[in-house]
Design a protein around this nucleic acid. Structure first.
Lengths: 363, 363
DNA sequence: CGATGTCATGACACCGATGTCACAAGGCGA
DNA sequence: TCGCCTTGTGACATCGGTGTCATGACATCG
């Protein structure tokens, strides 16, 4: 591979002049510039980042670790997708800044993290982004020789800068808009209570009801998922929860589910009970996991978890940390996503009239 | 950050001796070694890959491009997942070899590829893997200064080494096993005919029938998807195809779908027509897209597309190319995945007796 | 017209590792 | 005892860029 010396010789100038053409620092005469550019093209010259990094102490690299934060390797294959969108967002944000992403997916094996960190350190990454697989607290190992760190989709208790989804706002928006469309009895089958997302979204749910002057009815809110994923048990849990909530004296016209996968399960369960969707009951999810939400029949109303946007924000945050040296630990940055209305939630045209509590399908 | 000179000074030896301790070349006295290791630990020394790469001309980097091959940016958000698994497989395979993965996701914008290639070239990657989003022919831009290239999940017409899913074998296995379980009338609602996967899988389907002595009935094979994804049109297409196939004089007991998403749609459509799953009709998918297949109710029988394994194979192939310089273009490597049996396909207990063509649910 | 400033360019050192070669000390066979 | 090999170590050059400083050719200004 051609070097700057080859180019210099071929163009009949000094290496430093070639460097000036490359970087645009210092003045270069037009004729000289042309000669150099011709020579570079002829030789197919590409400057070496290694040499450049050595002199300037700037590698142009950003490290990224995903999958490391999962304490349970079991669910790695089931998640994954959100991380991908976050990564895409990060990439979009750093590419214009001429940074390159160095990615390691640990496959859930926390013990490999130190090794990865060392490799990143050897490559002299200028910053590091941890991507958690869902909104949660993480515990980062100490980072020897790695400067700036940002957590995406997670947080820790040391005040490491982080970017989080605005779960409360998302659920609030969904429920508020559903109320505006006439729903009054709104069930909420939540993810595991242990999750931060569940706590925050339940707050949003309750606040939306309160703002509309609707009393909070605790029999409408049921934990219907668990932390450890096991398809069979999860289905059973959901089945029971649906049993319970449909058996209420005044059953809901809309069921909000903890995520789109739960909603997908609910489709199967509700139909197995002979209900029509969304004619007999409306369903909403959370995540806007489009492969599910758009493909389900009918398409699923859901709240978008703004993964790509979070990636962008995380990358920008990291870049600002890299640039301005002495940065104090910032507050978590909350990113919210829109509600995606699709056919699975049907408007109740006139909620004040004494129609049946079952919604009517609008064509 | 400490350098090898700092370590040398702190240990009272020459830099070269530190280098020997690091790399284990040349003899080093035990006492000297201890001194050096103590100094390295004290200073938190991490060798610089840039300096190392410069001297040795080996960067330890492998480039990876995904999303580049999609000519349609529209469907980028819908795919994605398979690529992630391929990437995970690649990572698993190269990490033990002390290589680091440098990833760029183009987000479907082909025009950015040359820029990415240049960046990889500047970092002096030792090889490059293209990951296509589904089994198809791709057209790689010329690769200036980038040596070895492997395509994963795609192929080109220049004989670039590549790794492909064994679609024919997968569909053959699924249909063969379904026949063994008593199914005789097996419908096949395929992906777009233009896809390589469709052609190959249809061959597998036909061969399985032939091997069992069952005549191929072309009215059972219907193209029910299209290349350009549009959720609404796709649902319509599938609805029509199901209409047609269920209206046959001797309707199928099992529907094989082009992929798991189609199968998910079929669940909704079949149930909207009042059918029980899998009591009235069995369904099988393709991909083993676990988020869908395991979450659907009932869980979906499907063929695994061995993405992770393909990633591993692609990485190993690339490594062998990097090691042995003069490698001739190899044949495409076919990777096959297992059939995943779940409850959506019900055995027909005694296909020879004159029971109803509708399967009975086994508990 | 000489002092000063700007433009265009090159010589040289340096970033942090490692390959090459040299060399001293000690062991061993002739 | 001498020559030779092995072991342990260091001096020095080198990889491919860039920062610093010097230099020569002109243009400008008082």
């Amino acid at each position: 591979m051609a070097t700057i010396y080859d180019v210099a010789r071929s163009a009949g100038v000094s290496p430093k002049t070639v460097s000036r053409v490359l970087n645009g620092d210092g003045p270069v005469g037009q004729r000289t510039r042309d000669k150099v550019e011709t020579a570079m093209a002829k030789l197919g010259y590409v400057p070496s980042n290694a040499a450049r990094a050595m002199r300037s102490n700037r590698s142009g690299l950003v490290g990224l670790i995903t999958g490391a934060i999962s304490s349970t390797p079991s669910n790695v294959e089931l998640s994954g997708l959100p991380e991908l969108f976050i990564v895409q967002g990060i990439q979009r944000a750093i590419e214009p800044l001429n940074m390159t992403l160095m990615i390691s997916d640990t496959g859930g094996r926390l013990d490999r993290v130190p090794q990865l960190m060392r490799t990143f350190s050897e490559h002299r990454v200028e910053g590091l982004i941890y991507v958690a697989d869902y909104h949660k607290k993480v515990d980062l190992p100490d980072t020897p020789g790695i400067g700036k760190v940002v957590i995406a989709n997670g947080y820790d208790d040391r005040g490491t800068p982080c970017v989080l989804p605005h779960d409360e706002k998302g659920q609030y928006a969904l429920v508020s808009e559903a109320i505006a469309k006439g729903h009054r009895r709104i069930g909420y089958l939540t993810l595991a209570n242990a999750l931060d997302a569940t706590r925050l979204r339940t707050v949003g749910y309750a606040r939306a009801l309160a703002d509309a002057g609707i009393a909070y009815d605790s029999s409408l809110v049921i934990e219907a998922d668990m932390a450890e994923p096991d398809p069979e048990v999860e289905t059973q849990l959901l089945w029971d929860a649906i049993d319970r909530i449909l058996g209420l004296e005044d059953p809901p016209t809309l069921l909000c589910m903890g995520n789109d996968r739960m909603a997908m399960r609910a489709y199967g369960i509700l139909r197995s009970r002979g209900l029509n969707l969304p004619g007999d009951i409306s369903i909403a999810g959370y995540d806007n996991y489009r492969t599910l939400a758009e493909t389900l029949y009918p398409p699923l109303t859901t709240v978008e978890l703004p993964y790509a946007a979070m990636g962008v924000r995380a990358a920008r945050l990291l870049m600002s940390l890299i640039r301005e040296e002495g940065q104090k630990p910032s507050e978590p940055q909350l990113v919210s996503g829109p509600v995606c209305w699709r056919d699975s939630v049907t408007p109740l045209v006139d909620p004040k009239s004494n129609v049946t509590p079952l919604g009517r399908k609008t064509t």
